[in-house]
């Protein structure tokens, strides 16, 4: 992009998907399928669509599995928006706070092991950290807010 009007005049925020849904694994599947259809209309590059879908699957399932266990009828809010050349994703929920250790860093489970000793879990947060650079977590007034974003254009080089 040359010295552009986009830089001088920030583009308005544009929603790709906004929804509120029950915190269940089935509803996560439904929302990811909705996102897939919503992405079709955007023309965003496929690798970006894939990364967002992979990360969001892990984030939402983590909310369902860990943050909500003791709370019935819990809801999750999801917002995917485009602004200033970035795709922004934000989730909010009223579940338990996230363990701080998860947000710092996570080791990849060991893959060079005999079959019987291979891990069947522990991949989720590793995937999230590997694919995102700017994950922010806030806890305020009993609400968890996770947000992250991706550059719409691939980095060159």
């Amino acid at each position: 992009m040359t010295a552009s009007r986009a830089a001088a005049m920030p583009s308005p925020q544009c929603a790709v998907l906004r929804s509120r849904f029950p915190a269940t694994a089935n509803d996560v599947s439904i929302q990811l399928a909705r996102l897939h259809r919503a992405f079709d209309a955007t023309g965003l590059r496929l690798s970006l669509q894939h990364d967002v879908t992979i990360v969001l699957g892990e984030v939402l399932n983590n909310i369902v599995e860990h943050a909500m266990t003791d709370i019935g009828a819990a809801w999750v809010m999801l917002e995917v928006t485009r602004e200033d050349g970035r795709l922004h994703v934000e989730t909010t929920d009223r579940g338990r706070p996230l363990p701080p250790a998860l947000l710092a860093s996570v080791d990849l489970p060991e893959a060079k092991l005999p079959i019987d000793d291979l891990p069947e879990g522990g991949f989720g947060w590793f995937i999230i950290h590997t694919l995102t650079e700017d994950m922010v977590y806030e806890r305020q007034g009993g609400i968890n807010r996770l947000s992250f974003s991706f550059l719409e254009q691939a980095d060159e080089g």
Binding site: L32, H36, T53, I54, G57, E58, N61, I115, D116, L118, P119, E120, G121, F123, G124, I127
Partner: peptide, 23 residues
């Protein structure tokens, strides 16, 4: 079209079901 970490865990569990050295 889509695999998440739970699905990956299921594939690992299936391989363990095969038993022995079968991949």
């Amino acid at each position: 079209e889509f695999l998440d970490s739970s699905g990956l865990g299921a594939l690992v569990a299936i391989m363990k079901m095969l038993g022995g050295a079968r991949r």
